[in-house]
Design a binder for these strands. Structure first.
Lengths: 185, 185
DNA sequence: CTTTTCTTTTGACCTAAATCAAAAAATAAA
DNA sequence: TTTATTTTTTGATTTAGGTCAAAAGAAAAG
């Protein structure tokens, strides 16, 4: 839990009351490798903080799994469209390794929304998340296969080091054979 | 101005006080074809509502203009990274036609932020904008050239009808020759 | 350990789309 | 209008990266 507090305090200093509130609302969840945190067709009503392990976000298009992103330690994530707009998720969230998460449910986070410190954090986090997606989509849409790989290597080394080749290739929108060839120069 | 109010009321019903507040803060801006609304290297401290005309958002990469998106009537837009994080914009906003905008400056919108109705609208708008970028990046990253064109044709017919071929091709990340060939089947 | 299953690499081939170049069409300017 | 400029189309050629198939390596299961 301290890990989550440290993470939030990189955005905003928390009072001890806020910390206590957080501690009451946050839940520890553990998942085995390959277990689902969220499946498509369900409502996503949580935000998660990744304590340890790795989580893959993907959706299915024409029967093929398209990996959107892979999250590693000390990141927050959710299925944003479903969470923000109360619609069914099109995305799956699956543990790629044994994983520990801290979750805050939507109803609970709405209680926290009364708290200005938490709102500052949530806004900063959302702004950052938004900027990231905006940036990634630009970078990945314009570069060639090697350029995409180098970009990912710069901004998300953990993914490159730990994720499966096929999943990385899918994030980049290239075939895994091409990625394999890029890797050995 | 009524046009902006109608637009907002698609998200949230406004009281007459809120409408009056809005009317005081909002400014009408007009731009000639090719004029800049925002240039890279400057801070973006406004949100705009597009009353009439067309605005292209682009950035420069390796000396080439990369068109990110083109906005048409009844859309709101800003240079989000710059606006949200107070950093220099990497994006240009340029009128593609003679254009009328309604602008609200950041300091003014922070006054409006005291107003719960406005906050509901701002959050809904941001959520929608976010969802759009998220969706577009997925769609455009995975499809082939024809698929990308068909996607844009579905979701943004105005762009297809009114924007220059080269700009559309740039949004899709394909060459304008390829787009020209796709168009005549 | 062996065997089975899953993942990555390698090779051969093919296709979508980029590039280069020039003509045609459309728009703007004189 | 005629001329100049910009935009779009068309053709020829090249190439990055996809697909298919099989081998090699690694991990998991027996």
């Amino acid at each position: 839990m301290q890990q989550l507090i440290d993470y939030i305090e990189r955005f905003v200093k928390l009072s001890s009351e806020t910390i206590n509130e957080l501690k009451e609302l946050a839940r520890l969840e553990t998942y085995e490798k390959d277990e689902y945190i969220l499946e498509a067709g369900r409502h996503c009503n949580k935000i998660w903080f990744l304590k340890s392990g790795m989580v893959r976000k993907y959706y299915v298009h024409d029967g093929k799994e398209i990996t959107v992103w892979i999250h590693t330690e000390n990141e927050t994530f959710t299925s944003l469209q479903s969470y923000a707009q109360n619609i069914f998720s099109e995305e799956y969230l699956q543990a790629c390794e044994n994983t520990e998460l801290i979750s805050i449910s939507k109803s609970d986070s709405e209680k926290l929304a009364q708290n200005a410190q938490i709102m500052t954090f949530v806004n900063a986090m959302m702004g950052k998340e938004f900027s990231n997606i905006d940036k990634h989509s630009k970078e990945l849409n314009q570069r060639d296969a090697r350029g995409k790989y180098e970009y990912l290597n710069q901004i998300a080394l953990e993914i490159i080091k730990r994720a499966k080749l096929g999943h990385i290739a899918s994030i980049l929108g290239i075939s895994q054979e091409t990625l394999s060839r890029i890797r050995k120069f």
